Amino acid sequence: MKQCLTIFLATLMLASNAQKEKAYNYIAQYKDIAIAEMQRSGVPASITLAQGILESSYGESDLCKNSNNHFGIKCKTEWNGDKVYHDDDTKQECFRSYPSAAESYKDHSNFLRTRTWYDFLFKLDPTDYVSWAKGLKKAGYATEKDYPQKLIKVINDYNLNQYTLIALNKLPNDNQTLANTAKEEIYEDTTMAPELVITISSKQLRENQLKRAQGLPEDSVIIINPNVTVAKPSVEKKTANYPEGIFTINHSKVIYAKEGTSLLSLAKQYDISLAKLLEFNDMEDEEILATDKLIFIEKKLTKGATDFHTVKPNETLHDICQTEGVRLDKLAEYNGIKKNMQPVIGEKIYLRTNAPIVPKTMAQTNAQGGSLSTN
Rank of each mutant, 00 (worst) to 15 (best):
I7T: 14
T11Y: 10
L14G: 10
Q19W: 04
Y24L: 07
A28C: 10
Y30H: 06
I33S: 00
I35C: 07
A36P: 02
E37K: 08
Q39I: 06
R40L: 12
R40H: 10
G42P: 03
G42N: 02
L49W: 01
G52V: 04
Y58W: 09
Y58A: 01
D62I: 12
L63M: 09
N68T: 10
N69G: 09
D87E: 03
D88T: 03
K91I: 05
R96I: 03
S97A: 13
P99K: 12
S100T: 13
E103D: 15
S104D: 07
Y105P: 00
Y105F: 14
D107R: 04
S109G: 12
Y118N: 10
L121K: 06
L121P: 09
K123T: 15
L124C: 13
L124G: 10
L124M: 14
D128Y: 07
Y141C: 07
K150W: 04
I152A: 08
V154K: 03
N161A: 11
Q162N: 11
T164N: 08
L168G: 05
N173W: 03
D174R: 13
T177E: 14
T181I: 15
T181R: 12
I186Q: 05
Y187R: 09
D189H: 00
V197Y: 06
T199E: 11
Q209Y: 01
K211H: 10
Q214G: 00
D219R: 04
D219L: 09
I222Y: 00
N227C: 12
T229L: 11
A231N: 11
K232Y: 07
S234H: 10
V235E: 06
E236H: 07
K237F: 08
A240T: 08
E244D: 15
G245M: 02
F247R: 01
K253I: 03
E259K: 14
E259R: 12
T261H: 02
L266G: 06
K268F: 13
D271G: 12
I272H: 11
L274T: 05
L274V: 06
L277G: 00
L277I: 02
N281D: 03
N281A: 06
N281H: 05
D285V: 14
I288Q: 05
A290V: 13
K293Q: 15
K293M: 14
F296K: 01
F296H: 02
E298I: 00
T302P: 00
T306S: 10
D307C: 13
T310Q: 11
H318Q: 15
H318D: 13
E324M: 05
R327A: 14
L328F: 11
D329N: 15
I337V: 13
Q342P: 08
P343T: 08
E347C: 02
T353W: 04
A355S: 11
V358C: 08
M362D: 09
A363C: 04
T374P: 02
